[in-house]
């Protein structure tokens, strides 16, 4: 029993860490900066100026929204790549026949990605506020970190669903982009929910980032962590729901692929 738990923890911790390192090919830090830092900062600047041009929202609105959605990039693309990279390197079949617990395996891979999402989002927040001259109250920073962590978790949950689709679909990058663009459009990141049609605003309530962005905006405006507990709870719940659906779908699609011998063909 203890050995089984130990094995699971080992798969969770070391498997996740190794997979993460292989995922981004971290030979040089410049790859991280080029892929995850600079694009997020330039995205913040682009939308802040778009906001100035349209007169909708101030710089803070766009900084908060885009800094939070930055956590979705590692969550979506990173999780999808855990499947597609295995397929590309012809190790997906080996992974599927291995006796390792799928729960430990995929949660182990999700944890570093969620932490990465937190780091990217914090950097985007700090860098974006410096570039745009947005003042974030120092007292709000610890609560903001909590919101960022919850949002990164929710995005990674959605990433697990995305990863499961990777077992059925070869074009995981396309699907990741599709989901990310949908978040940009509908999750209250760049377009206030009040400006969206009702049906889209309703869908937004079930997306990661929507409640996180709202909570972060309230914190920057002076609210306390307790004031946004409801929003945080909703974000957490959404993330957990996506994670559960993702893990179940991975299991179901894996069985389906084994039965149909379609693992490499998807």
């Amino acid at each position: 029993m203890i050995r089984a738990v130990e094995r699971r923890l080992r798969v969770f911790a070391f498997g996740g860490l190794l997979s993460y390192r292989a995922l981004f090919g971290w030979v040089n830090p410049y790859v991280f900066i080029g892929v995850m830092v600079i694009p997020d900062l330039t995205q913040i600047v682009f939308f802040a100026y778009l906001g100035r041009a349209t007169g909708i929202g101030d710089d803070t609105f766009f900084l908060v929204g885009n800094a939070l959605v930055a956590a979705a990039i590692p969550g979506l693309f990173g999780m999808a790549d855990t499947i597609s990279d295995e397929r590309r390197t012809h190790t997906l079949s080996l992974l599927v026949v291995s006796p390792a617990s799928r729960l430990s395996l995929f949660l182990g891979r999700a944890l570093p990605i969620a932490l990465n999402g937190v780091a990217v989002s914090v950097i985007a927040f700090a860098g974006g506020s410096l570039i745009l001259g947005v003042k974030i109250p120092l007292t709000a920073i610890p609560a903001l970190v909590v919101v960022i962590a919850v949002t990164a978790f929710a995005c990674t949950g959605l990433g697990l669903v995305n990863a499961s689709i990777g077992l059925r679909q070869r074009e995981s990058a396309t699907i990741s982009n599709l989901i990310f663009y949908f978040l940009l459009l509908a999750a209250g990141v760049n377009v206030p929910l009040a400006l969206l049609p009702d049906w889209l605003a309703t869908i937004a309530q079930g997306l990661p980032v929507t409640h996180g962005a709202e909570a972060a905006r309230e914190l920057v405006a002076g609210a306390r962590l307790a004031d946004v507990a409801g929003l945080l709870g909703a974000e957490l719940l959404i993330g957990a729901a996506y994670a559960l659906v993702g893990l179940a779908a991975i299991r179901a699609f894996e069985l389906q692929a084994r039965r149909g011998a379609s693992l490499e063909l998807a």
């Binding site: 410049y30 080029g34 330039t42």
Partner: peptide, 16 residues
Amino acid sequence: RSSWMVGNLFEFPVWT
């Protein structure tokens, strides 16, 4: 080798 990364770097700046 990481030239694919450059695409990400210049997307938003040129849009802006």
